[in-house]
Design a protein around this nucleic acid. Structure first.
Lengths: 219, 219
DNA sequence: TGCATTTTTGCAGTGCCTGCACGAAAAGTG
DNA sequence: CACTTTTCGTGCAGGCACTGCAAAAATGCA
């Protein structure tokens, strides 16, 4: 049930984005990135082939050519390979919130910051497949939500600092939680639409509705 | 990971509320209710004593005096004992949505129906303890959210029928998801406040903010 | 009482996930 | 280049959640 902090190889500085910055850091850094990526690629690939239920951690590690034990040095659970954001993006969030204009309404700020975050996520090499897996196995969203919650906290922290209140402030919390929810709904709608339209269009629509107090469309 | 339907004893009609209707139905019905309740009580009680991590299914069953196997005839997971709603409440939801005035805005409808649902939940004998457990172990909320998702679906279905659209309609989905989120935030705030004020006050505040487009308090 | 149905239980098994301790690879040091 | 220190990969041993299956017990009904 509860997942305590694991003994993951610490991320010593520098970006940990999957795609970029490949040559940065020492040998160690590079190897860690390689292992992480290998595991993620293997997992996502197998998940798509057979469906997540039919893939064991052992399978993943066989493909990634590491010991099964190693998997849990990088991910706390089997499903964590599906989270769209890296740690960097999450920890960055408060700063990015503070970087927004002072006069901006919190909901708008959240919209903008989450938009940026999704851009980062979508530039990852496995995003497409991840999206397909989540569409075909909606149950998994529950598990992935843990990562969303981390983002929510980060968002709330930023908003709290920006508005000069605390993270426990009900208003700030509500904005954070609602924004994440809007994101979730948008991603889902976007995935189901097999669409040519971009995720951002769905996000804009959702946030616009929120901003209008969720009133029904006057037509 | 994914939790397929389990082989639970079928709930043949009649309410399954923990407290009320104790004498209804045949011996079988009563015994089933008794077992369910015994398991839930035992689990909640042990969770409070030792913390959920230190309680095994075996422990729970020992206290409830049933076989460990039986636990999973009633609950699909260890944490399911913590969900605040019974199946009845969830399946009822679409009807209750339709019973609301035609002119009412969807967000208001959601607020009203969730309010009723929480009243039912709070009348359960284990609610107080459940609330404490969730407060002390916020990680568990993630798991319990599964049940919230079921409620969300039910809510969306009702709203869709009420407004003459489909369950896939983005607006209806957004309202449902947002309402559940507001509920979650409200419950959390209420729990943390050690308060004399009622949950409904927190819910009203949250929904009012939503209705106003999450704009910051003009002061 | 005898038969059909439902629920409980034991058993055996799969697989996630953990702590621990050891060896190897890499980094820092002189 | 040796020498120490840190970090990472790995094997092992084990706990525990959860599942399907089939026998056994309990209940409902004629």
């Amino acid at each position: 049930m509860a997942r305590p902090a694991h003994t993951a190889p610490r991320t010593t500085g520098s970006t940990a984005s999957t795609g970029a910055d490949v040559g940065t850091g020492g040998l160690r850094e590079r190897k860690k990135r390689a292992t992480h990526q290998a595991l993620q690629r293997a997992a996502v690939s197998l998940f798509r082939e057979r469906g997540p239920n039919a893939v064991t951690v052992e399978d993943i590690c066989a493909h990634a050519e590491v010991s099964p034990r190693t998997f849990f040095n990088y991910f706390t659970s089997k499903e964590e390979v599906l989270v769209p954001w890296d740690q960097e993006t999450i920890t960055n969030t408060p700063e990015r919130v503070l970087a927004r204009p002072d006069a901006e309404e919190p909901l708008r700020t959240a919209q903008a910051v989450l938009g940026e975050a999704m851009n980062t996520a979508m530039s990852g090499s496995t995003w497409r497949d991840q999206a397909v897996i989540l569409r075909e196995n909606p149950e998994l969203i529950e598990r992935v939500v843990t990562a969303f919650r981390a983002m929510e906290s980060s968002l709330v922290e930023g908003l709290a600092r920006k508005t000069g209140t605390s993270c426990e402030d009900p208003y700030v919390r509500l904005v954070g939680a609602t924004a994440i929810t809007a994101l979730r709904v948008s991603v889902q709608a976007w995935q189901e639409s097999e669409s040519d339209s971009s995720l951002h269009e769905y996000m804009d629509e959702a946030f616009e509705r929120l901003h209008r107090g969720l009133r029904p469309n006057e037509q």
